[in-house]
């Protein structure tokens, strides 16, 4: 996993996601079924295409795109790809590269903040906990007031427990995170 910024993107994607993007024949079925494609600056089939070219400009465009952060992970593209590729895994690999190289698109940063808040919640409580998740997301995204109006009602119905639930196996969960970090550094 020691892919420098100059390494071929197709190779990096193959190593990280196990997908050979050069097999894509651009039928567009991924784009056709994608519920998020309308919000993307690059359609899923275009993401696959730009990952094939080996052009440094295309690599930059992909890693700085909003599209890779829009993916909801529903896997419709992967399910229906006639060439049995996994576009969702390709997008995941691109997100990792984008983050590592500090190229996350400005609008994508909020989505990244959500992912990071989710992972932080899992790391510390062993599960998805609403208050840490929302709190960290608001802190990191800077969007303090989003959806704030629903908070009182949710509090009243016990949907926002102020003391987060924790699971027994937190130590093991934390060890998984540490192992991942060690692997990333190596």
């Amino acid at each position: 996993m020691s892919q420098g910024p100059d390494a071929d993107l197709a190779d990096a994607v193959r190593d990280a996601a196990g997908v050979r993007v050069e097999r894509c024949y651009q039928c567009g079925k991924c784009t056709a079924g994608c519920p998020m494609a309308r919000h993307m600056d690059l359609a899923p089939n275009q993401i696959m295409r730009l990952a094939q070219t080996g052009d440094p400009g295309d690599r930059e465009a992909l890693l700085r795109s909003l599209a890779i952060w829009c993916c909801a992970g529903c896997l419709t593209c992967t399910q229906r790809c006639p060439r049995e590729l996994d576009p969702a895994a390709v997008i995941d690999a691109l997100r990792e590269l984008s983050r590592r190289e500090g190229k996350v698109s400005p609008r994508g940063r909020r989505i990244l903040a959500f992912h990071e808040a989710f992972l932080a919640s899992v790391e510390h409580t062993g599960r998805m906990s609403e208050v840490p998740l929302v709190g960290l997301y608001k802190l990191w995204s800077g969007d303090i007031f989003q959806d704030l109006a629903v908070a009182p009602a949710m509090l009243a119905r016990g949907k926002l427990p102020l003391i987060p639930h924790v699971i027994k196996g937190r130590t093991e969960i934390r060890r998984i995170f540490e192992a991942c970090r060690a692997k990333e550094k190596a």
């Binding site: 651009q26 039928c27 567009g28 079925k29 991924c30 784009t31 056709a32 079924g33 994608c34 494609a37 309308r38 690059l42 359609a43 089939n45 275009q46 419709t76 229906r80 006639p82």
Partner: peptide
Amino acid sequence: GRVSRVYRRQDGRLVVKGADTLAGRP
């Protein structure tokens, strides 16, 4: 572009979800 899905809406019309890969959009 290839079509991802065809289904029947409540009013009976068929919904064809395809892609225009040249325009880069569903």
